[in-house]
């Protein structure tokens, strides 16, 4: 069985041969994976090298932690991978940016309004959470197309606060 595992944007081809044997990018390995508790802890012994790993699955996304580093993983078999690539070539919303709340909090200040042109690094909103005021800045230049929060109001984690659209390029 052949799978394509994508770890933080790098693809690995993993082919399962028989019990304890597989190839990764064509290289054969001896492997033994055991779950070691009722939670998320695993022990992997890979060609004699021992790894202590933790695995979290949330909203269909798998995260593997080894040595404190986080690896975001997606695993597809060959056919799924092919299908995904064909359908992924659609139009992108690349020029749009949605500013989402990184945590629940209180909107202290909203210094921008719909129609404002902002530069990269401009403050879009000041959010208070855990008694700290955090400035959320524009990661790219753009024009404010939507403001979905109000000063003094509160937002939940991942709520969209502001949408930035692309700058008009016919300014001349």
């Amino acid at each position: 069985m052949k799978y394509i595992a994508t770890i933080n944007d790098t693809d690995f081809v993993v082919e399962l041969l028989k019990e304890g044997q597989l190839t990764i990018n064509g290289k054969p390995c001896q492997v033994d994976l055991k779950r070691v508790d009722n939670g998320s802890a695993f022990s992997l012994v890979l060609d004699g090298v021992s790894y202590a790993a933790f695995v979290l699955e949330e909203n269909g996304r798998m995260q593997v932690f080894i040595d404190g580093a986080r690896y975001i993983a997606e695993v597809l078999d060959e056919h799924e991978k092919l299908l995904r690539e064909v359908s992924a070539s659609g139009a992108g919303l690349d020029d749009f940016f949605q500013l989402k709340a990184p945590m629940p909090g209180l909107v202290v200040k909203l210094p921008v309004a719909v129609g404002d042109v902002v530069s990269r690094g401009d403050v879009l909103v000041i959010l208070e959470s855990m008694k700290m005021q955090n400035e959320l800045r524009a990661p790219q230049p753009g024009v404010v197309t939507e403001v979905q929060a109000v000063e003094g109001g509160s937002v939940e984690k991942r709520d969209v606060i502001i949408v930035l659209g692309p700058l008009e390029e016919n300014g001349d």
Binding site: I7, N8, V14, L22, V31, L33, L44, A53, Y71, E74
Partner: peptide, 13 residues
């Protein structure tokens, strides 16, 4: 990211 390969194996299995 030095353990990406091990992570890929765990995720696949």
């Amino acid at each position: 990211q030095k353990h990406a390969e091990a992570a890929a194996i765990i995720a696949t299995l």
